[in-house]
């Protein structure tokens, strides 16, 4: 799993202030095409704020940023067609069926009508939700709803998907399936930008950025980061790194 494509996300000195509170403190990083990029940090570290800036939901205070070739300051609207976003909380319509949700998002992403049938079948196959296509989303187990949410985020074949804690509240088997699927996506050339709390999951990322209190504390591949933080411990894992780095800041 090596990728050396062009940068699809490039961020320099990106800053977001809410009043006097600095949520994201001049961070810089870049993500390459087809990469699985992990964005790690404790609650309140600025993960969601960063994702929201990259998705064009909120405007950054200062810095530079380009996502899928569009400037996040001036072209925020243009970004939206090239990205998929799956939020932490299930944010599709619970009182509609998977089919109706998919249909709605095909419309919202203005996918050409002649492609609808193929896309619908593709999503159902990928998410394995064929049998419940006409059940209400609210009646589905959380893991299935996550799959539906992911399916809807990919309907328009985005270049980049942002997954904000996609596996929180999901059982281990579904989580494994989920990561297999993310792998599969990356192989197909989709860039995956994922945030997570689970350090075992972070091993699936090619590169990770650890963020705490709005600042980046570590960057690189999981093994590189472990080696840097614990040069003399062979048995250390990302969990140890996470605890060490986050504790350091809080002292």
């Amino acid at each position: 799993m090596t990728t050396s494509g062009p940068d699809v996300i490039h961020v320099e000195d990106l800053e977001k202030k809410f009043g006097r509170f600095v949520a994201v403190d001049r961070i810089s990083f870049s993500v390459k095409k087809g990469e699985i990029f992990g964005f790690l940090g404790p609650n309140g570290a600025g993960k969601s704020t960063t994702i929201r800036m990259l998705c064009g939901i909120i405007k950054p205070t200062s810095g530079h940023g380009v996502v899928a070739g569009h400037d996040i300051f001036t072209d925020a609207e243009e970004i939206k067609g090239s990205i998929g976003y799956m939020s932490q909380r299930f944010s599709l319509y619970e009182d509609m069926t998977p089919f109706e949700n998919i249909r709605f998002y095909l419309g919202v992403y203005s996918v050409p009508l002649e492609e609808w049938d193929d896309r619908i079948e593709w999503v159902f196959e990928m998410t394995r939700l064929q049998d419940v296509r006409h059940r209400l989303a609210r009646e589905l187990p959380p893991g299935w709803r996550q799959r539906l949410a992911l399916g809807c985020a990919l309907l328009h074949r985005p270049e980049i998907v942002f997954l904000d804690e996609p596996t929180s509240g999901v059982d281990p088997i579904t989580r494994r399936h989920f990561w297999e699927f993310i792998d599969h996506l990356a192989r197909a050339g989709v860039t995956v930008f994922v945030t997570t709390h689970y350090m075992d999951e972070a091993h699936n990322c090619e590169r990770i950025v650890m963020i705490n209190e709005g600042s980046i504390v570590a960057t690189g591949s999981p093994s590189k980061i472990i080696g840097e933080v614990f040069p003399d411990r062979a048995d250390a894992d990302l969990n140890d790194v996470f605890i060490r780095l986050m504790a350091r800041r809080n002292e």
Binding site: G56, I57, G81, Y85, S91, V108, S110
Partner: peptide, 14 residues
């Protein structure tokens, strides 16, 4: 209330 607006905001919906 349902949070579904968040998903709409990241789409090209004007």
């Amino acid at each position: 209330e349902a949070g579904t607006i968040e998903q709409l905001i990241v789409t090209p919906l004007k």
